[in-house]
């Protein structure tokens, strides 16, 4: 049986790179990323699972990093907003959010981007209803959501065109 007490080294692959940081068992993945690894792109809003700002991908699946202990993600692949832009160029999803005004203050955006990546991986051509349903766990206090829905639609189209 593996046992962790006090400070221990935790290893995971973040945005494709093997990383090691120090965590207590109680360290949330959100805090591990932000404080342990200095990757502050993942935002923390409510810390109780309600707002979705902290959403990241764990082994390709969407997860609230505030409802996951870092030790639970040991050995897993974690993808955050920092891994999206390549060489300074926005990813297709990021570009679509920019083009459609899918953000204003940007606090919720890393979570929406991660959720959108998960949605498009599962359903490359979602209807508006499916987009709304999928993103229902993410809260935005600025945009009124219309721009976000349009951005996801645009990202889906861009991706479809690129793969055609």
């Amino acid at each position: 049986m593996e046992t962790r007490q006090g400070n221990v080294a935790v290893e995971m692959t973040v945005n494709g790179e093997p990383m090691v940081g120090i965590a207590e068992p109680r360290t949330l993945l959100s805090d591990f990323l932000r404080h342990g690894l200095g990757m502050t792109g993942t935002h923390v809003g409510c810390e109780q699972g309600v707002c979705g700002a902290c959403t990241v991908l764990i082994d390709g699946q969407p997860a609230r990093s505030c409802l996951t202990f870092a030790v639970q993600a040991e050995g897993c692949r974690v993808d955050t907003v920092e891994g999206m832009a390549e060489g300074g160029a926005l990813s297709d999803v990021q570009e679509a959010f920019r083009a459609e005004h899918g953000l204003q203050c940007g606090f919720c955006t890393p979570g929406f981007l991660a959720a959108t990546e998960a949605l498009l991986a599962e359903n490359p051509d979602p209807t508006d209803d499916e987009i709304r349903d999928y993103l229902s766990g993410n809260i935005c206090r600025c945009t009124g959501y219309q721009g976000i829905i349009a951005a996801v639609r645009r990202a889906a189209q861009t991706r479809k065109a690129a793969s055609a």
């Binding site: 049986m1 593996e2 046992t3 962790r4 068992p25 109680r26 949330l28 810390e47 202990f69 030790v71």
Partner: peptide, 13 residues
């Protein structure tokens, strides 16, 4: 808020 301290056990069976 943050959780209080605890020990983490990961049984294999």
């Amino acid at each position: 808020m943050k959780p209080a301290q605890f020990d983490y056990l990961r049984p294999g069976s």
